[in-house]
């Protein structure tokens, strides 16, 4: 976790200043219109589209030398793509990095919101594959743009209700659509719906979709409601187990297959959260055997 000089072959945080200004302008408008997707001229980054180019551009536009950056993928700091993105910013911005949620000022994430409540002064940057919540109902941008303009979200409710009619429940488990401040329906990125309640946060939440050229935002203390029906209220579900390492009963869990016989264990998906609890002396069903 040491601060370094950034690689002098690149501008601070990689992007040129004109590109950063363009992204910064989009971010400010995104905060002013919560949940609305602001088009931006996404640049080609040195990592592939679909691998976090939107998040990387947003992070690059926000970073200052004083920041402490945390990068997670699936809740974990040590997944390969998280490692790769963290190294990119260590090299091009020379910023300090951390694995601790509470010590970080900017967190770039793919598919999770950290378990520890975020606070004022923190920014959570989401990598977004398909920013348009209506895309799978209507593939045309020209049509979905009109639907947002007219606040015409009936199709989305019809889809959710058809789920209930067919399956007895809404069959969307991740990227569960939300309505922001009672106006725009928004895709929260493919976080599990367990995380949806934490979209109402004290931190600034910024969403970057590089390939689809969209930026959007949820300011702190902003109303974010998961779409549901009175007779089928939204439910933030998780595996019905405790973490086998730290014993936590309220965190989101990964299911791990541990032997050829199909034996399983459940562990916190947020690796920093789990390690923190174990350091505090909490233990789970299998913590005695934990070799990690």
């Amino acid at each position: 976790m040491t601060a370094m000089q950034h690689d002098p072959a690149y501008n601070f945080a990689y992007l040129d200043e004109q590109t950063k200004r363009m992204i910064r302008r989009a971010l400010l408008k995104a905060l002013a219109i919560p949940g609305y997707q602001v088009p931006f001229a996404s640049r080609e980054m040195p990592m592939p589209y679909g691998w976090g180019t939107g998040g990387v551009q947003v992070t690059a536009a926000c970073l200052t030398p004083e920041d402490r950056l945390k990068v997670i993928d699936q809740g974990a700091d040590d997944t390969t793509n998280a490692v790769s993105i963290r190294k990119f910013f260590e090299r091009t911005a020379g910023v300090e990095t951390t694995e601790h949620t509470t010590e970080s000022t900017i967190i770039q994430t793919r598919h999770r919101i950290p378990e520890a409540p975020l606070t004022e002064g923190q920014i959570l940057v989401y990598q977004v594959p398909i920013p348009e919540p209506l895309r799978f109902l209507e593939p045309r941008e020209t049509e979905t743009r009109k639907m947002h303009a007219l606040e015409e979200y009936g199709l989305m409710y019809v889809k959710l209700y058809e789920d209930i009619a067919h399956n007895g429940a809404i069959s969307t488990a991740y990227a569960y659509p939300v309505k922001v401040e009672g106006r725009y329906v928004m895709d929260p990125s493919p976080i599990p719906k367990f995380d949806n309640p934490r979209l109402e946060s004290a931190a600034i939440q910024l969403f970057g979709a590089g390939r689809e050229q969209r930026i959007y935002a949820v300011p702190p203390h902003t109303q974010v409601v998961s779409l549901d029906f009175e007779d089928h209220p939204f439910e933030a579900s998780k595996a019905d187990h405790d973490c086998d390492l730290c014993g936590c009963g309220t965190s989101y869990l990964d299911e791990v297959i541990v032997d050829d016989a199909g034996g399983r264990m459940f562990v916190c998906s947020d690796t920093d959260f789990c390690a923190g609890r174990r350091a505090e002396g909490h233990s789970g069903r299998l913590s005695g055997e934990d070799a990690a």
Binding site: F12, A13, E17, E66, I123
Partner: peptide
């Protein structure tokens, strides 16, 4: 030092617009 000073200024602007 544009890259660094603009970054700090933007963070102030971002916080201002967010709060």
């Amino acid at each position: 030092d544009t890259p660094v000073e603009a970054a700090r200024a933007f963070r102030a602007a971002l916080e201002a617009m967010a709060r």
